[in-house]
Amino acid sequence: MSTVTEHPSTGVHPEPSANPQRPQRTDRVRPAVNFVRRHALDLFGVAAIGYLLAPVFVVVAFSFNDPAGRFNFTWQKFTLDNWKHPFGVPGLAESMVTSLEIAAIAAVAGCVIGTPLAMALARFRFRGRAATDTLVLLPMATPEVVMGASLLALFLNLGIPSGFGTIAVAHTMFVLSFVVVTVRARLVNLDTHIEEAAADLGAGPFTTFRLVTFPLILPSIVSAALLAFLLSIDDFVITNFNSGTTLTFPLYVWGAARVGVPPQVNVIGTMLLLASLLVAAIVLTRRKSD
């Protein structure tokens, strides 16, 4: 850095003879001000990260709490009991199984119908493409209450009873947009020359897809499936409207919130957090090595 001879701006700089790096005319106040400024931002950044993580720590810490009464609000004493019996409260295990089943259905169904839709939008020009685009993006710009209420209006008017099936359909619908956006972003960045090379070597469109395109977009499909899975497990509002008497994990927590949330809910929350962080870390490191 000290002997820069080809500083990109040297050519157009008004004083080519001066030190092409920083002009050294800076007075003594400037470094001090810069120092404070730099650290003000650092301090703010650290504080903001602390703000974001504080509730997460509360959730984890209170999974080790031994609450005195029904409410797990104040710290009483440390215990491992909640972790030894994470499903030691009636109904919790069943609701978690339901949530996992629905998340798996939504993730798989979302990817199966979402991936071809992403292909169509990324690779083809066709009539109705703009309308399709809008139809894909609109659910992401719609408040969940409205989506939940609309689906309930549909099911009520058609006389379809709410339950496991309606939740699965609703979840597949709202994760679909996220799948399309994720897979399409990868397809757009993909070098089309590879596919053209395959075609030049005599591969038909289907073979090209199977042997070239699909393996290249598979990581993004997996990311999309994981995202869909997480969104589904996390969803409360749309589920609330279309669940009938079926209980998912968030619905269980909602019901428990009025009468006192058992610390086991924090245990499951912590488990979900750890699983998600692990998945996110894997996705991030994979993306880096790509």
Partner: peptide, 10 residues
């Protein structure tokens, strides 16, 4: 990370 502890729990 806050997103991963689920909406209701956070």
């Amino acid at each position: 990370a806050p997103f991963f502890v689920t909406f209701l729990i956070r």
